[in-house]
Write a protein that binds this DNA or RNA. Structure first.
Length: 979
DNA sequence: GCCCGTCTATTTTTT
DNA sequence: ATAGACGGGC
């Protein structure tokens, strides 16, 4: 009876119900992995609706497009009766960045004036989404900036040694903590922040500089040891060992003088100037990056009381709060409406899953919520009362009930936050213990259908094979390994079945292992798909494009010929012979080059003035029409269309963008193992998880920081190098003062590596395996904690997948099956489903048809590119008839506003249509949807009409006050068709 | 046991 | 370029 009472009490105070029920006031929710976070947020949303609040007054913020889409889908599904579908479809449920973008487009025009800039933000600004694209833009900007400011900052520019990206990244970092430049220089409070925090520094200095007690007497201090390591092989000026070191530690007398380093003052001024000029440069080009977009949204809300109040919400909920930075926290506060002294704010997150500090997010936003809440409110109220609600009071709710993992895995997962990453690394155990209670018993009873094991392999390849062996065992020993499925609502067992490939996920700290595993799996006959980023310019397609473009630039360029010859099948000695003898007395020995390659180069030269044509021709030569090829074209087109670039520049950009990435799912079998990085796996769950590649220097990652500039709270902003003279010689010296401060203030973020381990472990529901071939401390220590042996002699025959390969087209057709949630579908795909397929006569592809298709595609791309430029007010000169026509056509529209290449998203009942409209022309009472076609006839017109119809419907639902009409412009025929 | 020189591998990714 | 691991010299 006593027990029953406790049960009842517990049920009543289930933290989930507590959150769902309490809608008023400030709530911070610590919701661990698998605790039903999304479920609770949606339920709570419904509760707020019940109190007769309108969807437009409830802001629900997430961080990924997918999460926002999912959240809206659930809300629409559950509450359409309460509020009506159309209202919920338009409710503010969106990503943080989408919200900022919308705010700026609506009310951000004058925002730059708050920095003292004359530029405006126009409603159709574009975002620099691609990092290599932005880096190149910054490089270009910096060259001009250097030219203008050469006299003042010459020495600083030398000291940077061309590492321009370091400047860009520190600017973004400053932006994310709310330090902005201005035409009048840094504000007084920002100046202080850039100097650093001496108290904090001093305290850490003393702590690290304590002489340690060793077994044979005094041991040098940690700081002394660390700094001696740093000093090796460095060129310092005025560095006197006798002054810097005492007997067993660093001389404490130099503490204050190294901190107040006068050399940094000009550097701070330099950063302000670069920062502000770069913002100005981007605005002039109608460009923003993500950081500046958030900054301008903040400036609007901070400075304009009217706009602030007009944009506030009665209810604000934010998910994944551990992924916010300091500036985003402040924006959230500014968005809360003052409801009689109270704000209805609910921040949900899990500090243990904070793994994005490389983009400046702060888990302290959760762990120090109370302090930050009042601290940030004070800062926002500095000169004017902006936060009027009470920030002294809030409720903290902790979700403890786990609905995902087995008892064994759940217990084990907590321990991963206590393993040290190196021999020296000390875990802050008090911090973890006080912020993470022992887990309750899990809700899902898995009994014996669970295990955690550790396997050691001999080498890299063997580790991949080991994973595949274990996968084979899981699949084939059907009596031993079973997947238990539970009913969602009741928690009852619904099904027990054998393991399928798609139940299994192999995680790695880096992408490299994922690719290796996929390669090995292909040989072994195990289906493995990869999901995540691919470096496109490292792909074969990318390498060949770069090679040919180099040759186009300079046919003597041996670095161009080598990949080309390699692709032609020449052996290594042959290529070597070629490279040794290709150039004799500075002239080309062209006899060595196969005639058809020379011929192709001549063909390419006719495209010298149209880079996109050249790229298309290269891809066409090798018959690349795959996803990677399309992405390459799209990336190069983006670079090409922002500003006309020369071939020279393009080659340099590609050389510098080896890491340009795009997301992909590779492999096309439906029942397959998935491999991905731990970062990519966040938010997902799998019955079987492998944490592979737990190897030395990989996981935990112990890489240092190579940047030329440091910035953190206690050290402030400092350059690591400076330009100076030594006698009559000029050198770039390292600044030993900065290095020493860095040794004191930089805390290697192994806590984040541990959180990454925690994220990986908590993906698993039933079976969890670790593999390694050079065990790192994580592997050894977690094995110890679990009490398992490390198995080094595991053998199992890899049994090839017997199920039939499913072709790509079958998988695509499968997508009409919408049971698994909302699908994204393009209008083209939609049309394919709607139109009778017999209308298209399928012809076998031959060389001619491929050539023709390629030519047509080139032409279509060029026309679209030119139309895009014309619509954006960029004049294009050309003698081509079609180009003249399209220019004339666009001018003849006489629209109030034109938006070219408009991306749009239109949710229908169970799918979302996603596409790009060539051109939208806005008039007072109507919008015209325009699509260009370069066809030589109108035989596909019915198809096109349908496409336009879909666009029109979508547009009509977005711009309710306007009529929508459709227009197809057949450029080659010079004919218009109204739809 | 302590210190120092040498060796070894070297990113994660959303908007 | 960096930091941790390792091993030789004392």
């Amino acid at each position: 009876m006593h027990g029953k009472q406790i049960m009842a009490l517990k049920k009543h105070t289930n933290p989930q119900d507590e959150l769902i029920g309490s809608t008023e006031g400030i709530h911070i929710v610590d919701a661990g992995a698998g605790t039903g976070k999304t479920y609770s947020i949606v339920k709570r949303y419904g509760n707020i609706l019940d109190k007769s609040y309108k969807p437009e007054n409830i802001l629900l913020i997430t961080f990924t497009k997918n999460a926002a889409e999912q959240m809206r889908e659930k809300v629409v599904k559950d509450f359409s009766e309460k509020s009506g579908i159309s209202r919920l479809l338009e409710a503010p449920i969106m990503t943080f960045h989408a919200f900022c973008s919308r705010l700026l487009k609506k009310s951000g025009m004058n925002s730059p004036s708050y920095l003292g800039l004359d530029e405006f933000i126009s409603g159709n600004f574009s975002l620099a989404e691609d990092s290599s694209f932005e880096e190149e833009m910054f490089r270009k900007f910096f060259m001009t900036f250097s030219g203008i400011n050469n006299e003042k900052y010459e020495s600083i520019q030398y000291a940077l040694e061309g590492k321009v990206n370091d400047v860009l990244s520190v600017i973004k970092k400053l932006c994310s903590v709310g330090i902005f430049p201005s035409a009048n220089g840094w504000s007084e409070s920002d100046k202080e922040k850039l100097k650093g925090n001496y108290e904090l520094f001093s305290e850490r200095f003393d702590r690290m500089n304590e002489i340690r007690k060793g077994e044979r007497g005094d041991k040098q201090s940690l700081l002394s040891e660390k700094f001696k390591n740093t000093v090796r092989d460095k060129l310092y000026k005025d560095f006197k060992e006798g002054d810097v070191y005492a007997v067993k530690n660093v001389n404490p007398g130099i503490k204050e003088s190294i901190f107040n380093d006068e050399a940094q003052e000009l550097f701070h001024e330099f950063i302000n100037d670069v920062y502000l000029s770069y913002i100005e440069y981007m605005l002039k080009r109608n460009q923003l990056n993500y950081e500046f977009m958030v900054m301008f949204a903040y400036l609007v809300l901070y400075n304009n009381k009217n706009l602030r109040q007009n944009n506030q919400f009665e209810y604000v909920m934010i998910d994944e709060f551990q992924d916010t930075d300091e500036l985003q926290f402040k924006i959230i506060l500014l968005l809360c409406k003052n409801m009689n002294g109270i704000a209805n704010l609910c921040a949900v997150g899990d500090w243990k899953q904070g793994i994005y500090s490389f983009r400046n997010t702060k888990i302290e936003n959760i762990t120090e919520f109370k302090n930050r809440l009042s601290e940030f409110a004070d800062e926002l109220n500095k000169d004017e009362k902006r936060i009027e609600f009470d920030t002294g009071d809030h409720t903290k709710i902790i979700f403890e009930n786990n609905y995902r993992s087995s008892d064994t895995i759940l217990k084990f997962s907590r321990g991963t936050l206590f393993v040290s990453a190196t021999a020296e690394d000390e875990v802050d155990e008090d911090f973890v213990s006080s912020n993470f209670a022992e887990p309750l018993l899990p809700e899902r009873k898995l009994e014996d259908l669970t295990e955690i094991k550790f396997y050691k392999a001999a080498d890299r390849i063997d580790e991949c094979r080991l994973v595949l062996k274990k996968i084979s065992q899981l699949i084939n020993e059907k009596d031993k390994y079973k997947i238990r499925i539970f009913e969602n609502e009741t928690g009852k067992v619904a099904e027990e079945r054998p393991v399928m490939y798609s139940d299994i996920c192999v995680l790695s700290r880096n992408k490299k292992f994922c690719h290796e595993l996929q390669r090995e799996a292909m040989t072994a006959g195990i289906p493995v798909n990869y999901s995540g980023g691919i470096e496109i310019f490292a792909s074969e397609q990318g390498v060949l494009i770069l090679a040919w473009l180099r040759l186009l630039l300079n046919e003597k360029d041996i670095s161009g010929w080598i990949p080309v010859l390699d692709k032609e099948g020449y052996s290594f000695p042959e290529v070597k012979y070629f490279s040794d003898n290709f150039i004799k007395e500075n002239s080309v020995n062209s006899d060595l080059i196969p005639a058809d390659l020379f011929e192709f180069l001549r063909h390419l030269k006719t495209f010298r003035n149209n880079i996109l044509f050249a790229v298309e021709a290269i891809l066409g030569r090798y018959r690349y029409y795959d996803e990677t090829a399309n992405k390459l074209i799209a990336v190069i087109q983006q670079w090409n269309s922002s500003e006309l670039i020369s071939l020279n520049e393009l080659v340099r950009i590609i050389e510098n963008s080896a890491n340009a990435e795009f997301d992909t799912e590779s492999g096309n079998t439906s029942d397959a193992v998935l491999t991905q990085t731990i970062h990519a796996s966040k938010g997902l769950e799998y019955p079987v998880v492998f944490i592979a590649n737990v190897n030395e220097k990989i996981f935990p990652d112990t890489k240092g920081d190579k940047g030329k500039i440091i910035f953190n709270h206690s050290a402030g902003l400092r350059a690591k190098t400076f330009y100076g003279t030594n006698g009559s010689y000029n050198y770039i010296f390292n600044n030993w003062k900065t290095d020493l401060i860095n040794a004191v203030t930089k805390n290697p973020d192994y806590a984040e590596e541990r959180r990454l381990l925690y994220v990986a472990v908590t993906r698993a529901k039933q079976y969890l395996y670790f593999t390694s071939h050079r065990p790192s401390p994580f592997f050894v220590q977690t094995a110890g904690k679990s009490g398992s042996e490390i198995i080094s002699d595991f053998e199992y025959e890899i049994i090839k997948n017997k199920t039939e390969e499913i072709s790509v087209s079958e998988v695509t057709a499968d997508e009409s099956d919408v049971d698994k949630g909302r699908k994204f579908i393009s209008p083209h795909a939609l049309m394919e489903n709607l139109i009778d397929e017999s209308a298209d006569t399928v012809t076998e592809e031959n060389e001619y048809s491929i050539n023709l298709r390629n030519k047509n595609r080139e032409f279509g791309l060029m026309i679209h590119n030119i139309a895009n430029k014309t619509a954006n007010g960029i004049e294009v000169e050309s003698d081509i008839e079609e180009v003249k026509r399209i220019k004339e056509f666009i001018h003849s529209l006489k629209a109030d506003k034109l938006i070219a290449e408009a991306d749009f998203l239109y949710p229908e009942e169970n799918r979302t249509i996603r596409g790009t409209i060539d051109l939208l022309a806005f008039y007072k009472d109507r919008v015209t949807v325009i699509d260009y076609k370069t066809d030589k006839d109108k035989k596909n017109i019915e198809k096109y009409k349908l496409q336009i119809q879909i666009y029109k419907n979508s547009i009509k639902s977005i711009y309710k006050d306007k009529e929508a009409e459709g227009l197809i412009y057949f450029v080659s025929l010079d004919e218009m068709v109204i739809v």
